[in-house]
Amino acid sequence: MEKIECKKVSISTRQLLDCDNGVWRGGKHVIETAATPLANQPSPYIKGTYDENKIGAVKKIAIKSVHNGKDIAVFLEWESPTPNLKIKDINIFPDGVALLFPFKNIDKTPINEMGTQDYPTNAWYWRPDFDEKPKNQVSHGLATSLYTEKSSLVSNSKWKDGKWRVVMARPLKASRPGERTVDLAPGKSIGIGIGVWEGANGERGGVKAFSKEWRALVLEA
């Protein structure tokens, strides 16, 4: 499985949350993304009327991650010609990005179904209209994802020159009552996937681009 290294650094979380911080320069991993297949859309309407070739406007996304022993930060960068910041009208959709993690055995957790009843997934979901407070979400398969009541995630984002740059950060260990989430630890590795929504293309819900396979996020000890 393709590996994404999460190096240990001694930089404060506040600094890591700066998209312009030097730590995010270079060494990024580029992941190709593709449309979520129509077969995986839990809606006869979407299946019957959407064109798979027109879904998934974002074709690739760059990722880099580091941790400072206490918090983990993930930097994401992708092309988006115009920023879609909020739901200004009924026909307008915001851009977005999400990281997906399996709670349990990666081999039994289908990424394109966002897990199953027995093998759920955790998503960290960023949107420009979330006020830099990404949502923590648990999913037991398609059509089942729900936000948890609490979320430890914070973010910082910038859209410039046709590109989104987003940093999401969180304590390595964050699960608590009201926040069911994956706990990470230095020296350990976990599966990771990415979903990305281009608002200008009407993308929301399952109509998005995603990394078709799990990668391994390896946290340096």
């Binding site: 859309q41 839990p42 809606s43 006869p44 309407y45 979407i46 398609l142 819900g205 399952g206």
Partner: peptide, 9 residues
């Protein structure tokens, strides 16, 4: 049609 469309049931 609304029901069929909803991917969240």
């Amino acid at each position: 049609a609304c029901l069929d469309a909803c991917p969240r049931n």
